[in-house]
Structures are given as structure tokens and as C-alpha cells.
């Protein structure tokens, strides 16, 4: 069979452009974590969020200042990252207006993202491209797009659901959603994102509500704004959980259960995971612990690199992030939930 020259050229250029795209944006050819819904179902559930593409502008040239000049309130929420020897805090009241910061940490290009409607902060390696806000939502969650291929990436999935990189998974890095007081205590030398973003916004006000005290959209009992693919009433819609996904399944632990138990052992699918509460940052660190290696909570130490101590060494860390329960359950309907008494 003869292939027409023009068709051959078109196919070759498509393959080449995809190769170039994958080279500029580090991805994994298949998502590291099973996705509950088909890509078609996910695409069908995407809806307009109101602003158009880039109507919520990502920060592409972030500026930073010293912690002593930041003037943040102790209980103010920040998204913190410690990576490649660089420590930075991104105040939530700035990210609520921009949702993505295209930054560079120790020479590595990364995107720090935050979705106020699902209360989720995630970091991604972005290679030579940048990420932007598509203006679309999936399960109320920010749908990002990459400027190399225009593929669409729901933030919580980290998997492209449309575009040339459909089905590929982004490479994540751990960020911590905590208060300024806690972050500064752990990392006194941290740099802080300034309000010199290139845009004019009212950075003193969160248009959705308040985390201190809890109010507006962030109240645990308040309803989400947009329909979701799966509903689960085991917890109030906006209850905060620490979630992680693994090849064996997804799991979530409520903040209160994690704080009360200190170390949570979880059988997920046919494997085993350990979640360690970090009392300093009030977050959790997750490890794949297939041999159920015993961990002594008293022997754990918390520092700049996270948690260390007897039993932790040799375990593979798993990325985890805080999320509102309704959003976590909407993306991962089969999730395990630890909400207090028993796993």
C-alpha cells in the first residue's frame, strides 16, 4: 500500500511535534495512578468556570522578598516549597488571584499551583514550557494548560485529559499548605512571593471567604459551586483531608485523625502505606511501606527535609496534598477514608 506523500509528511510532523512537546514538558507516558473515570467521561464533565483562558493570569515573572519584609499575619495560609536547596512561601492571598506561579527552584523550572475552589496546592516540573489557567473546571478543580502543546491538565489529576499529550502524567513535587507561622518556624530563611506580580489585584482580600476564621466558601458544611462527577457524604463537603494516590488505589486521612494518631498505617489495595503527622507544619508525609516496617513515633525527627528517623529510611515517599473532601471523592470515588476511630 502506498502512503500519499502529504499524509506521510503530516504524520511525521505530528510525531516530531509530540516528541518536541514531551521533551519540553517532563511527563510520564501513562499516568502513575489509575484514574477512576474514562478520559471521555472526564472531558464531558469539564465546564466553563467564568473567566476565559488566561482571564486568571498565571505569574510568569515572580519576585521574592525576605521573610522579615513579608509582613504576613501568623495564621495566614501559605503554600511552601523546599526544593533543590531553595525555600519559598507563596501567600495564598496572592495565589487565589493567579492560581499558578511559573517559577524556577535551584535551576529547575517548576509550576506552583493552587485551586481555591478545591483547596488544593500542587507543584509540577514544567521543563521549558509554562502552565496557564484554562478558565475551565473539572469537579470544581482548576484545569491548567501547557503553553507548549495546549494540552489540558486538571490540577488534582495531574493527567492530560485533552490535547496532544492526552493520557500523559505530569511529574509532581511536594508542596506544603500550612500557616505562615508554622512555615517560618521550620524555614526561617524562606523567601516570600511579593505582590509585584505585574497585575493589579486586591491582595488583601480573598474573594471566596476566609480560613481564619473559617467563613464563606471555605465553611466545611457549605456546598460546592459546580456539579461533581461523584458525591460522597461520609464527610462535610469542604472538610480538609490529606490525600494520596498510588498504583494500588487512593486514600485520604482527615486532619483530626492524622493529628490524633500521629502515625497512620493503611492497607491500600494489596499493599501498605504509612502516613506520618508533622506537628510543626500540621501536614502529613506518606511512604510506601510494603513490608510494614514498624515506625516508632517517638523516634521521628522533623526538619528542613521533612521527616526522618528509625524506620523511615529506605521507604519510598509518596506525594500527598490537602484537599476539600468533595473534590477528593469526586476524582477518587473508591478512595479509602480514615476519619477518626478506625481505618
Amino acid at each position: 500500500m502506498r502512503v500519499p506523500g502529504s499524509l506521510f509528511l503530516a504524520m511525521a510532523s505530528l510525531v516530531m511535534s509530540l516528541t518536541v512537546a514531551v521533551a519540553v514538558l517532563p511527563t510520564q507516558p501513562s499516568p502513575p495512578v489509575p484514574v477512576a473515570d474514562s478520559l471521555e467521561a472526564l472531558r464531558a464533565a469539564v465546564r466553563a468556570g467564568g473567566p476565559p483562558k488566561d482571564g486568571i493570569p498565571a505569574i510568569d515573572a515572580p519576585r521574592f522578598q525576605a521573610a522579615s519584609e513579608a509582613g504576613l499575619a501568623p495564621d495566614e495560609r501559605v503554600i511552601g516549597v523546599h526544593h533543590n536547596g531553595v525555600t519559598r512561601a507563596y501567600p495564598q492571598r496572592i495565589l487565589v488571584w493567579h492560581e499558578i506561579v511559573n517559577d524556577e527552584l535551584g535551576g529547575e523550572p517548576v509550576s506552583i499551583s493552587y485551586c481555591p475552589l478545591t483547596g488544593t496546592a500542587l507543584g509540577f516540573r514544567r521543563g521549558d514550557t509554562t502552565l496557564g489557567v484554562s478558565g475551565r473546571l473539572l469537579n470544581s478543580n482548576l484545569v491548567m494548560y501547557d503553553r507548549a502543546t495546549d494540552s489540558e491538565w486538571p490540577q488534582m489529576l495531574g493527567v492530560a485529559i485533552a490535547g496532544p499529550l492526552v493520557g500523559h502524567g505530569l511529574d509532581e513535587l511536594r508542596v506544603v499548605w500550612t500557616t505562615w507561622q508554622r512555615w517560618q518556624a521550620r524555614y526561617p530563611e524562606t523567601q516570600v512571593l511579593t505582590t509585584e506580580t505585574g497585575y493589579v489585584r486586591n491582595y488583601r482580600r480573598d474573594p471566596y471567604g476566609s480560613y481564619d476564621p473559617l467563613g464563606g466558601y471555605y465553611r466545611p458544611e457549605s456546598r460546592p459551586l459546580f456539579p461533581v462527577m461523584h458525591e460522597d457524604d461520609r464527610l462535610p463537603p469542604k472538610a480538609e483531608v490529606l490525600g494520596f494516590r498510588s498504583p494500588h488505589g487512593a486514600a485520604a486521612v482527615t486532619q483530626s485523625a492524622l493529628a490524633a494518631q500521629g502515625v497512620v498505617e493503611l492497607a491500600v489495595g494489596e499493599s501498605h502505606y504509612t502516613v506520618v503527622h508533622d506537628p510543626g507544619l500540621d501536614t502529613g508525609w506518606v511512604f510506601h511501606n510494603p513490608d510494614q516496617q514498624p515506625i516508632d513515633p517517638e523516634a521521628l525527627r522533623f526538619g528542613a527535609e521533612g521527616v526522618s528517623g528509625s524506620g523511615i529510611e529506605g521507604l519510598a515517599p509518596v506525594n500527598a496534598f490537602e484537599a476539600m473532601w468533595f473534590a477528593w471523592a469526586a476524582f477518587y470515588p473508591d478512595t479509602l477514608l480514615v476519619d477518626g476511630a478506625s481505618p
Binding site: 465546564r47 466553563a48 468556570g49 467564568g50 473567566p51 476565559p52 482571564g55 474573594p207 471566596y208 471567604g209 464563606g216 466558601y217 456546598r223 460546592p224 459551586l225 459546580f226 456539579p227
Partner: peptide, 25 residues
């Protein structure tokens, strides 16, 4: 409210919010 500030949408709640967001333009 529907276009860029979610304040009005928060007040209105579901299901009007989702519909308004799509029609905002």
C-alpha cells in the same frame, strides 16, 4: 459577579452559579 468575582456566585450557590458562569459573556 459571574465573570470574575465569585462573591455573587457564592451567595447564589448551586445550581444557578454553574449556569451563570457559562453565560457570563
Amino acid at each position: 459577579g459571574a465573570c470574575c468575582a465569585p462573591l455573587l456566585l457564592v451567595w447564589l450557590g448551586l445550581p444557578l452559579a454553574g449556569a451563570l458562569a457559562g453565560l457570563s459573556s
